[in-house]
């Protein structure tokens, strides 16, 4: 056999193979197109859709949803899911308002720490007790919902004397609402973590192929725990933002965010099977959900009909990104 000439260029186009077609059209293009189409449709349906007032409404909702969803995204990237974000948000919300009364500004860091700890517990149940995150977080979510109701069975109003502290969220900086700035900060944090840090990259490796990751010496326990801690952080921060925005806590406020956060993540193009997607996807996904939620009301889509449209969008998004080679059987 003749030895191949050593100087030949190896980057060639000739082997441009077409593997899984599904992976070749990044889902993010679908998401972006959907967002643009929705905005155009709703604007055509009602010119007030793009009014400053309405954009502010969409922005508030999108800001809070994207923070929960950015956290949720990490658990989905590793191939898991966090169903406890709802319970955690409810619990953090009432805890925050109660603590605000008692210890003032310290309520902020303490609530964040509590949320981080809850995230760690979720991760530990998955990695140490070794039960699927779907079940683990369903359980902790239930416990947290109870805890929220035990702290306060009814919505609690923030004390008027502490309204100044709420301005940390409700105020403006150079004309930009702090709520949006906080969401932007969360986005930058998650984006940088996933793109430019080793632990962020490890989230992708573990989500893409956990066995390979283990065999290559990646700390898979630590990585999975970290993903759930990030999810706890997102839920905790979102709960604080929401409570400030509403001037009070509510022991049931988190419920809608379980499905909404998962929907935002997958509609943005992060695969439920793990390993692909990212922070940009999630922001777009959250915007799509916020635009749909608001736009369908603005143009007067029958309220009974709205859920089915949302459901359709979720099914299409998952169909586009779901890696069928990873699950031998679709259950």
């Amino acid at each position: 056999m003749t030895a191949p000439d050593s100087g030949s260029a190896t980057i060639t186009q000739e082997k441009a193979t077409v593997g899984h077609k599904r992976l070749q059209i990044p889902a993010i293009y679908f998401a972006l197109t959907l967002l643009v189409v929705l905005v155009i449709l709703f604007t055509l349906g009602n010119q007030n859709f793009l009014s400053a007032y309405n954009l502010n409404t969409i922005g508030n909702y999108a800001a809070i949803l994207s923070v929960v969803a950015l956290g949720q995204m990490n658990t989905i990237l590793i191939g898991g899911i966090d169903l406890s974000v709802g319970g955690l948000m409810s619990f953090t919300s009432v805890l925050f308002v109660v603590l605000l009364q008692l210890i003032g500004v310290w309520a902020f860091p303490i609530c964040i720490l509590v949320a981080l700890a809850v995230g760690y517990v979720n991760g530990a149940i998955l990695t140490r007790i070794k039960i699927p995150s779907f079940i683990a977080t369903l359980g902790t979510g239930g416990i947290l919902t109870s805890l929220a109701l035990l702290v306060s069975p009814l919505p609690v109003v923030a004390p008027g004397s502490k309204y100044g502290l709420l301005d940390l969220v409700n105020g403006n900086l150079l004309g930009i609402p702090n709520l949006l700035l906080l969401a932007l900060a969360a986005f930058v944090l998650f984006y940088v973590t996933l793109r430019f840090t080793k632990i962020g990259r490890n989230i992708y490796y573990v989500g893409s192929n956990i066995k390979m990751s283990w065999m290559s010496g990646i700390d898979i326990v630590g990585t999975r725990n970290f993903a759930f801690v990030l999810s706890g952080f997102g839920a905790g921060l979102a709960a604080i933002m929401l409570s400030c925005n509403q001037f009070g806590g509510d022991p049931t406020l988190g419920n809608v965010y379980i499905l909404q956060s998962i929907a935002a993540v997958v509609v943005g193009g992060t695969a439920l099977t793990g390993g692909t997607g990212g922070a940009v996807n999630t922001i777009i996904g959250a915007l799509i959900l916020a635009v749909m939620e608001n736009g369908m009301n603005v143009v007067g889509v029958d309220a009974y009909f709205q859920q089915s449209i949302l459901g359709l969008v979720i099914i299409i998004s998952v169909a586009l990104t779901f890696d069928r080679t990873k699950t031998a059987m679709i259950k």
Partner: peptide
């Protein structure tokens, strides 16, 4: 067992040496 198939060649090749590819603490 050997590859993260859904990830790029670069991401697979660099898996073990990410620490050496950092500038100012970031990859």
């Amino acid at each position: 067992d050997g590859l993260a198939l859904g990830m790029t060649i670069a991401e697979n090749v660099n898996l073990l040496v990410l620490d050496h590819l950092k500038v100012g603490g970031f990859i």
